[in-house]
């Protein structure tokens, strides 16, 4: 059981995720350079936070063309689990694996704080360690986390029970308080909060552990 963490030029949470999955949870973990296409023997893949390719053009727009992501699409189509955190979520929407887009925060602030969130779906295994409606706390750190989509897409997300996480107190203007969504199949989760920063009590909380543990769940 091994998970991979994609490293783009400009990723800056790749080592944090490694610290959380390998260091805190003891899950075998390896880095995947963005130019590699070898995803052999991986059970799940994390797209970490950061500023891939300097966020040039739009967040995630350039990363979409990285060779590793061609393999990632195949990995997802074969049922592989993918977690996109923050910039990773932005990349997943640019790639079309998740619907909608992340836009500039309503008040233009880069928000860096721990926020309350509601587990809004139990459809997938990602939140198997939590109760439906449970309030959890995770750090957010983003300037462009305002989730946007058309009303048709929003209805589809709701009909498919794909809204996984909502903000209890909407910090950035996201439509319907959305903080994280899954794809219809349920094997891809994108979320703006950082579970890897909430895996050690000394750092303020451990609510992220249950989400990262789900990388290896079936």
């Amino acid at each position: 059981m091994t998970i991979g963490i994609v490293v783009f030029p400009g990723s800056n949470c790749d080592r944090d995720v490694f610290w959380a999955t390998k260091g805190c949870l003891g899950i075998p973990t390896r880095f995947l350079w963005h130019e590699s296409t070898d995803l052999e023997n991986l059970d799940a893949i994390v797209l970490p936070g950061g500023f891939s390719y300097g966020d040039y053009l739009r967040c995630g727009a350039i990363a979409r063309f990285a060779p590793v992501l061609s393999s990632l699409i195949e990995f997802v189509n074969n049922g592989g689990k993918v977690l996109g955190i923050c910039n990773g979520f932005q990349i997943l929407t640019e790639l079309g694996l998740l619907q909608g887009a992340l836009t500039r925060n309503k008040d233009l602030l880069f928000i860096c704080e721990t926020v309350p969130l509601l587990v809004s779906s139990k459809r997938t295994k990602w939140f198997a360690n939590f109760q439906y409606g449970e309030e959890i706390s995770l750090p957010i750190a983003h300037g462009e986390g305002r989730y946007q989509c058309s009303s048709d897409v929003l209805k589809k997300l709701e009909d498919d029970d794909s809204i996984a996480l909502r903000y209890s107190k909407n910090p950035n203007g996201s439509i319907n308080d959305i903080a994280g969504i899954t794809n219809k199949a349920g094997n891809v989760l994108g979320m703006m909060p950082h579970p890897e920063r909430a895996c050690d009590k000394k750092l303020g909380g451990i609510d992220g552990r249950g989400i990262l543990e789900a990388l290896l769940g079936n």
Binding site: T103, K106, L108, R146
Partner: peptide, 13 residues
């Protein structure tokens, strides 16, 4: 351009 239905906080500022 941002679609007219999308809030443009930088434009508002």
């Amino acid at each position: 351009s941002l679609r007219t239905s999308v809030l443009d906080p930088a434009g508002e500022a």
